[in-house]
Design a protein around this nucleic acid. Structure first.
Lengths: 211, 211
DNA sequence: GTCTATAAACAGATAGAC
DNA sequence: GTCTATCTGTTTATAGAC
């Protein structure tokens, strides 16, 4: 009768091992789908890049599509939400939140090279497959809401009234930043890191003006 | 010795017929790549959707990739350039160019359902294949320049100084509009048609303010 | 739970008929 | 110049060994 791992807590239980396998496969899937696309990535490639065989993959996921969908649900927009939360908590009053947000986005564009392609792949899958469109749209809304909270907090602190629902503002800011990240990937010279915060500043100046 | 088609001008010469075949194949490729992606679209599907067989396709294009690249070169950004030119010529002083541009973009998002997915597919291909990145970036620059000319003309007419190079402004406007078009595809309710021109107005108000 | 081996379907690309 | 038939490699997915 082997009890719980009291002697060697490092050894993983079967359930933990399987969860870890899933985790590794999802990470590998993110990399591979980002670099090759849904159609271009093979399940064998994904499995081997994670250090497993196809069998292990199919023991954890029903098929290629379900693996993709699960990955999408897990991190469709997690990075943005994450970022917004960091800004929300970390910069309560100290530095310029717009500048911080801009810097961070430029970093995402440059350092997390799989992020934008993966987002694009998710978006494409959503617009091509009506039955998952609502799910992706909902995830996107979560990110937008995170951004919206940040905008609310910032304008409240500054004592300014934007004159329009912050939901609308968040939508525009979200679109702007996403567009700039993509353009920077294509032609870094045309989108210097400062442009992110600069563009935001123009937008908010205009908003306050028209309030 | 058969001379030129003097009797029945409707009959196409072999060269014309081949050109027409290429044209039809490219159109079909645009539809199919937009709906299924590069990896998901099969050459057979593309050929048959155009009313031809695979043989005809391979007689006109070296392979699937070259077909895709040729399509990309042909219309990577033609729609935007087109649109800018229409606005540039058509609205010399009459209506609000910002409102017209916004309306048009909303229409593109709603009516030309293959446009945005195809753009996304091109972008993905470019960031995944370094050897075509410069080509796509160059095409994108052409569109940006068209937009820039429109902005220049508009601000000149209005007698305002933007305070920043119009190249920079065009980059930001371009990113903003692209982001809104994509977001509208995902969740039309969050991006009403008026938002396109409204967002542009905020941006330009802020720009003029900071000049 | 994961691996190896394999089945079954499909893709891209070519050759020869017309 | 286009079509039909086919070759070849690769893909997804499964079955059975460990």
């Amino acid at each position: 009768m082997s009890g719980p791992d009291t002697i060697r807590p490092k050894r993983l239980s079967r359930a933990e091992a399987k969860l870890r396998t899933r985790e590794l496969l999802l990470e590998s899937a993110a990399r591979t789908f980002a670099r090759k696309g849904f159609g271009g990535a093979s399940v064998e490639e994904i499995a081997e890049s994670a250090g497993f065989s196809v069998g292990a993959l199919y023991s954890n996921f029903a098929n290629k599509e379900q693996l993709f969908l699960e990955l999408m649900s897990a991190r469709a927009t997690s990075r943005v939400t994450e970022a917004s939360e960091i800004l929300e908590e970390g910069n309560l009053g100290e530095t310029d939140p717009l500048a911080a947000l801009g810097r961070m986005l430029a970093d995402v564009a440059d350092l997390d090279i799989d992020f934008a392609p993966l987002q694009a792949e998710f978006w494409l899958y959503a617009v091509r497959n009506p039955h998952v469109l609502d799910t992706v749209a909902a995830r996107m809304r979560e990110s937008r809401e995170a951004l919206q909270r940040l905008i609310d907090a910032t304008s409240r602190r500054a004592g300014t009234d934007l004159g329009v629902p912050s939901e609308t503002v968040a939508t525009v800011v979200f679109a702007l930043l996403q567009g700039l990240v993509r353009q920077r990937r294509l032609d870094p010279g045309s989108v210097p890191p400062e442009l992110f915060s600069q563009a935001l500043r123009w937008l908010f100046t205009g908003l306050e003006e028209s309030a």
